[in-house]
């Protein structure tokens, strides 16, 4: 990936266990460049989710820093940074009301005020996934796990982020829904291959191989093989 732009850089991330000795993350160094599809694999409890949350600046760190395009992400830069780098939870929370309500909700946030909700574009996305616009009028609590995850992904994608941090997005889904989610992310990446990147956390090696061009292993909070890429 030489020549591609450095998007996200983690410099020496350390996070202590809440009580007692030891580290949840130790000296994690990682660079995400435009066009990269990274996968982070490791057994449960190895710190995959914590690493992804740290990359999104959702949790405080004991040491280390996150840089976005060379600048440290601190203070009031954080919300704007999260406009470009969106973390997706394993179990999406969509809130009350219809699917469309949920998709419109982010536009009420200050960082997205300048953007406008584009229903037509969402309908096109849904068509691509073999769904019709009817899904937008459904109540959120009527959605299956797979549908909810797809809506959560569309909610993030419509905001035109540059990096998606995907925390086992298909862990609770059946095979069909898993493929639909993988396809959606693949199509999204292909639309603008150098200006986008994904970091996908998975406990499933096969899936990680399918969705990534580079795999990193996390063991007890430490990235194996030097950690830098």
């Amino acid at each position: 990936m030489s020549g591609a732009e450095d998007f996200l850089r983690a410099r020496g991330l350390w996070r202590r266990k809440p009580r007692g000795e030891g580290w949840l993350l130790s000296d994690v160094r990682l660079t995400v460049r435009g066009g990269q599809r990274l996968a982070i694999v490791g057994p449960s409890g190895s710190g995959k989710t914590l690493l992804l949350r740290a990359l999104a600046r959702l949790d405080p760190l004991d040491r280390g820093e996150i840089l976005w395009r060379g600048e440290a992400v601190v203070g009031n830069r954080v919300p704007d940074f999260r406009r470009h780098v969106i973390y997706l939870h394993q179990r999406p929370v969509l809130g009350e009301g219809t699917v469309e309500d949920s998709l419109q909700a982010p536009y009420r946030l200050n960082v997205h005020r300048a953007s406008r909700f584009d229903r037509q574009r969402l309908v096109e996305w849904l068509r691509l996934l073999g769904r019709d616009a009817q899904l937008l009028t459904r109540r959120q609590r009527e959605l299956s796990g797979g549908e909810a995850q797809i809506i959560a992904l569309l909610r993030a994608i419509q905001l035109q982020p540059q990096v998606l941090l995907l925390d086992e997005p298909t862990a609770a889904l059946d095979a069909d829904a898993t493929l639909a989610v993988e396809r959606l992310i693949d199509v999204w990446m292909r639309q603008d291959d150098t200006a986008r990147a994904t970091v996908w956390v998975s406990h499933d090696q096969q899936q990680a191989a399918r969705v990534s061009t580079k795999m990193l292993a996390l063991q007890q909070g430490r990235l194996q093989g030097g950690g830098s890429c």
């Binding site: 999104a56 959702l58 919300p79 999260r82 939870h89 946030l109 993030a156 905001l159």
Partner: peptide, 16 residues
Amino acid sequence: RDEVESLLALGASRWE
């Protein structure tokens, strides 16, 4: 908690 964190992940300020 999940709702609050989803909002933060989408770019909400702490107040939002």
